[in-house]
Amino acid sequence: MQITITNAEQLKTKPDENQLGFGTIFTDHMFNMDYSVEKGWHNPRIEPYAPLVMDPSTMVLHYGQGVFEGLKAYRNDKGGVQLFRPQENFSRLNQSNRKLCIPEIDEAFALEALKQLLTVEKDWIPSAPGTSLYIRPTIIATDPFLGVRASFTYRFFIILSPVGAYYAEGFNPVKIMVTKEHVRAVRGGVGDTKTLGNYAASLLAGDLAHKAGYTQVLWLDGVEQKYVEEVGAMNIFFVIDDELVTPELSGSILPGITRDSVLALGRSWGMKVSERKISIDEVIDAHASGHLKEIFGSGTAAVISPVGELKYGDTVITVGDGQVGPLAHKFFQAIQDIQYGVIDAPQGWVEAV
């Protein structure tokens, strides 16, 4: 398919790169492509960023049939632009598509479309330290129909946003709170899928955590409410003695690309790395006995997020000395150095634009 390009007649004023927040500013152009049963995926185009016009009965608004991804473009010290493991994002998007009964996309074509969009918007990619261009590919059901079935039509779009740090704390320890009042997902559902309802399901518990002075919720499994799963916006890691532990992928945890990168780097460094069930009681006991060294999260938005405090019921623990731990710092530095081209990446991890 040939991608058509329509340039915006009037360009926006670029923001101050040193004052970027997260997810509030969007570039001049976006990518759009449509699907119908008769034509399949068709009409790929780059055009001015604009609102989507939808009928009030559009199915995504009523039944949540939509999926998305999140990745970033980075400007390296030579002025070039590169992506971090983008093939994995489009592969995961298709995994989400399959679970939501959405037609799969051509992953190689989607990556090429993204590269063309980034070429058009290259002046939006910031170069200030710690900044990047956040990329949000999304697919939504577009049939104007009230009734529970898979849609026959879809829109695939990609929007771009220059960003700074995800958390206001920056690369400093955050506080997380375990909830036993709410569950996010169970095995056999869509907890391992980047779909709309997963995030809607996390809002109430997240709001209660914020009101209690905590940054994020740490979710337990939805059946026994015993085993740690993930944090609202990231996967979770524990350092217990010399073991790096993260919950195993059980069907209700998002298979994070940064998570996978941490595991791969840890193994390459000769660390003892475990993907296994870990109960919240094991975490609390490891802290009480002095064996819990660090907790940190991983995700595209924050990369690595050290945890300085964890609350579980009436128990509040300070992790380490409440500061950034040495392993969290090592992983953060290594992944960022790869993303920004400071050091060589493992094969296949960096895609030049």
Score class of each variant (00 low, 15 high):
residue 108 A to N: 11
residue 24 T to G: 07
residue 232 G to P: 13
residue 224 E to F: 04
residue 68 F to Y: 15
residue 289 S to D: 11
residue 242 D to R: 10
residue 160 L to R: 05
residue 165 A to K: 03
residue 96 S to G: 12
residue 173 P to L: 02
residue 281 D to I: 06
residue 28 D to W: 12
residue 152 F to R: 15
residue 311 K to G: 06
residue 144 P to M: 01
residue 287 H to E: 05
residue 6 T to R: 12
residue 276 R to L: 10
residue 15 P to V: 03
residue 226 K to C: 03
residue 28 D to Q: 03
residue 142 T to C: 08
residue 106 D to V: 02
residue 255 P to Q: 14
residue 52 L to Q: 03
residue 78 K to D: 04
residue 46 I to D: 00
residue 40 G to V: 13
residue 60 V to G: 03
residue 15 P to W: 02
residue 76 N to W: 04
residue 26 F to G: 06
residue 205 A to L: 10
residue 54 M to N: 10
residue 91 S to A: 14
residue 141 A to Y: 10
residue 302 A to D: 04
residue 343 I to G: 03
residue 53 V to P: 02
residue 177 M to R: 13
residue 32 N to P: 02
residue 227 Y to K: 12
residue 130 G to Q: 08
residue 188 G to C: 08
residue 220 L to Q: 06
residue 128 A to Y: 08
residue 25 I to E: 14
residue 164 G to L: 08
residue 275 E to Q: 13
residue 237 F to H: 07
residue 11 L to H: 12
residue 306 P to W: 01
residue 351 E to G: 01
residue 5 I to S: 08
residue 171 F to K: 05
residue 238 F to D: 01
residue 256 G to D: 01
residue 10 Q to F: 09
residue 64 G to T: 03
residue 111 L to Y: 00
residue 194 K to D: 05
residue 345 A to D: 10
residue 273 V to P: 01
residue 142 T to L: 12
residue 315 T to Q: 15
residue 3 I to F: 01
residue 205 A to T: 04
residue 99 K to N: 08
residue 40 G to D: 02
residue 218 L to Y: 06
residue 62 H to C: 07
residue 133 L to S: 03
residue 103 P to M: 12
residue 345 A to T: 01
residue 251 G to F: 14
residue 176 I to W: 01
residue 124 W to K: 13
residue 256 G to R: 10
residue 72 K to L: 02
residue 190 V to A: 15
residue 92 R to T: 11
residue 142 T to H: 04
residue 183 V to K: 15
residue 292 L to E: 01
residue 263 L to S: 00
residue 243 E to I: 11
residue 183 V to A: 07
residue 231 V to M: 13
residue 105 I to N: 09
residue 296 F to A: 07
residue 69 E to R: 02
residue 242 D to V: 07
residue 39 K to Q: 14
residue 75 R to A: 09
residue 237 F to Y: 15
residue 133 L to Y: 08
residue 58 T to R: 00
residue 84 F to S: 06
residue 121 E to H: 07
residue 71 L to E: 14
residue 202 S to V: 05
residue 122 K to Y: 03
residue 204 L to H: 12
residue 174 V to K: 15
residue 187 R to P: 01
residue 257 I to M: 12
residue 93 L to G: 04
residue 230 E to A: 13
residue 314 D to P: 02
residue 48 P to Q: 09
residue 325 G to H: 09
residue 152 F to H: 15
residue 198 N to Q: 08
residue 145 F to I: 13
residue 348 G to D: 13
residue 182 H to P: 01
residue 217 V to A: 02
residue 164 G to E: 07
residue 95 Q to R: 15
residue 218 L to K: 08
residue 195 T to V: 15
residue 277 K to C: 06
residue 304 I to A: 02
residue 152 F to C: 14
residue 351 E to F: 06
residue 251 G to P: 06
residue 349 W to A: 03
residue 263 L to N: 11
residue 131 T to K: 05
residue 222 G to E: 06
residue 284 I to K: 03
residue 138 T to L: 12
residue 15 P to A: 06
residue 47 E to R: 15
residue 158 I to T: 09
residue 14 K to T: 05
residue 317 I to T: 04
residue 102 I to S: 04
residue 316 V to Y: 04
residue 345 A to L: 02
residue 352 A to H: 10
residue 103 P to F: 07
residue 266 G to S: 08
residue 180 K to W: 06
residue 195 T to L: 12
residue 350 V to N: 05
residue 203 L to T: 05
residue 163 V to P: 00
residue 325 G to E: 07
residue 24 T to F: 01
